[in-house]
Amino acid sequence: MAVVVTSTLVKPRALAGAPLRATQDPRWVRWLLTGIALGFLAFFLLLPLAAVFGEALRRGVGAYFAAVGDADALASVKLTLIAALISVPANVVFGVAAAWCIAKYSFRGKSLLTTLIDLPFAVSPVISGLIYVLVFGAQGWLGPWLIEHDVKIIFAVPGIVLATTFVTFPFVARELIPLMQAQGSEEEYAAITLGANGWQTFWRVTLPNIKWGLLYGVILCNARAMGEFGAVSVVSGHIRGETNTMPLHVEILYNEYNFVGAFAVASLLAVLALVTLVLKSIVEWRHAHAHVQAHAR
């Protein structure tokens, strides 16, 4: 399919005898543009990254590991992992369900649902946090009831998980909806015609088709879940060693003039981000690979 499109587009030029290149710009323009892009990348991405690790290791490897092994730092790592381990699977289940019903069915209010999924992207994370304070806070709608029954939501782990889930809500669904829409329902119809039930169709036909897209969504979702600051900051209460996630702990250490500690924890977050990027590249590569193979068959 892709091949056909390209050839029709290029045909008139090819007939006119022009070289098969995307642009006609002279060489220096291309070098300049590449140079600007690379320079920008180095200045805005690589330099800060290098600075994080440089600052973290400024007092040596010993100080670095002491900072990372600090009880409050470990507690923040633990809380960040808990938040990610709960919010990511929750959003996978929701994302697949939402993408499924949006891509495969048509119903009233479908565009409303699609818009609502994007809501967490559209509102500022601080507002996302405040929503939970307004609902679950002591002065909020459910606050008095929660206090009476001694249920802690905000300023405790559940609030942090909720806020994280809210801001990472769209990632999986957003990734899957266009994919599933492009794939259409023919293969599912075929499976059902051949006697498969709903679950079998999902596990054997739908899931294998969307698995790379899903994985990609999960990776992005996870990256944001671990890195979220604003929403979590509002519902955290900033109790040392208890309700501070890694990004919050970085801020606290920085404010305490503990720059090595702050950058050490920041470097852990940076490592998580780099691992995420590597995984993402692998997934993209595998996806392209699988795609080519599927077409070759």
Partner: peptide, 8 residues
């Protein structure tokens, strides 16, 4: 504000 909102 946090304590008013339920910080224990």
């Amino acid at each position: 504000r946090g304590v008013i909102d339920g910080l224990q």
